[in-house]
Design a protein around this nucleic acid. Structure first.
Lengths: 238, 238
DNA sequence: GCAAAAGTGTTTCATCTACACCCATGT
DNA sequence: ACATGGGTGTAGATGAAACACTTTTGC
């Protein structure tokens, strides 16, 4: 470590938060992007984010950005990774703490934050070039999401409060980019006892209507305390 | 989002890296702490860390701190979490990016960074009060380590290049704070085919000497590419 | 020959995998 | 009546859990 410096030299950085906001719709995994209307990267799509206010907690900043962009509150939000290459921003040293969020896409009402920016959902498998290092951030978020739905019951955050087993299966298939075997998937998820049968069915579908379920978080918390581990497998072997 | 501000207002933060450096010795999991010799938290034990230099990458900063404190290079180092409560540092807004590191404790040669500070290993199960929010950081690191050794072959980073199966088992037991069944543990780990039998044995022990193994990273990488998932279980049932 | 840890096999049980047909509804 | 997805059971394979005794070395 070099000799003691004037500490003030270190107080010349800025922090931002960037959110990877996942949604699920039409059988596809999506993320919410905003089109920048100012340099740098003007007209590029980017992750919603902003500077962290001087007395603001990091997670609060992420929640604020999410609220301002989508009108949503109390949604699943978790810190992902921090990106801080010296050259990642042209205004100076800007480090971004990336968060990822899982939202029910039907609840979304865009509010483009006073800036009248485009803000729309994009399917993750055909993203164009994004601003800054946001492609890398999205890649890390996708990776984390794949692992996360395997070991924690967070997939439900992307579905409406009442969902069918097939919808849930399609969600796993979309995120893992694989196909799952219907009977085994159902047996596995039902055997955990985390889904409550709502005794209601789909309406208006041109085939046998499916039963609706909800995820019972209270049961999950209890099981978790007594050592239960949520776990889904990708299988469908080779 | 509020009206556009002078962006300069945001460039008044500093960031640091802090390292949770894990080692394993005498059957116990340890972390490396430094005793502070200046305020704030003078005389408290703290995680090794320092300000990130203006043009330095985050991971490079973490590696630098590690090298300066321990003389070690090329060791396992991974980003953990970023801590940024507004009140966590008295000099101003300081956000810390925490890393965790797994090292072979025998390689350690302390170099107290010109500051002649105490730097010693502490067993993790009886830590006194630490400086700043470092207790929280250690708790998060421990949690991550527990999960990490379950699904990735990183435990070997804490052992010498040649180790016995019993040492490996004790490592898992120390981190998970549980006991494992010897025969099942051995069958499980050997069945993965990641350990190379070195055809050497312990010397100077007052009992039957154990065989020495090494972890074969090349094989692991190959298996991983073809879809293999490392996984150890805590079991020993209830 | 005794102490101390190393090393090893089998049975039981639970879970995972693969697989094909009937059911309920809308049109 | 037909098209569409919903819904179910079983046999076989695999992996996990439980459990006790023999072996090798130093002293």
């Amino acid at each position: 470590m070099q000799a003691r410096k004037n500490f003030n030299d270190f107080f010349k950085s800025a922090f931002t938060v960037d959110n990877v906001i996942f949604g699920f719709d039409e059988g596809k995994l999506k993320i919410l992007l905003i089109r920048r209307n100012e340099p740098p990267f003007e007209d590029f799509w980017a992750l919603p984010g902003y500077f962290v206010q001087p007395k603001e907690d990091l997670e609060a900043a992420a929640a604020r950005v999410l609220r301002e962009m989508t009108g949503m509150e109390n949604v699943y939000l978790e810190q992902l990774h921090t990106f801080g290459s010296p050259g990642r921003h042209n205004l100076g040293r800007v480090i971004t703490v990336a968060y990822y969020s899982l939202v029910k896409i039907a609840d979304f009402r865009p509010r483009a934050a006073g800036l009248a920016q485009d803000i729309t959902w994009h399917t993750v498998d055909d993203l164009e070039q994004l601003a800054f290092d946001h492609e890398e951030i999205v890649a890390v978020a996708l990776d984390k999401l794949k692992k996360s739905i395997r070991t924690r019951p967070v997939g439900f955050e992307l579905l409406p409060p009442a969902f069918t087993l097939t919808e849930l299966q399609h969600l796993y298939e979309a995120i893992w980019e694989t196909e799952l075997e219907k009977r085994n998937f159902r047996k596995k998820i039902l055997s955990m006892g985390l889904l409550e049968d709502l005794n209601r069915t789909q309406e208006g579908v041109a085939h046998r209507p499916a039963k609706l379920y909800r995820f019972d978080e209270a049961i999950y918390r209890k099981l978790e305390e007594s050592g239960f581990n949520f776990e889904m497998k990708e299988s469908k072997s080779k």
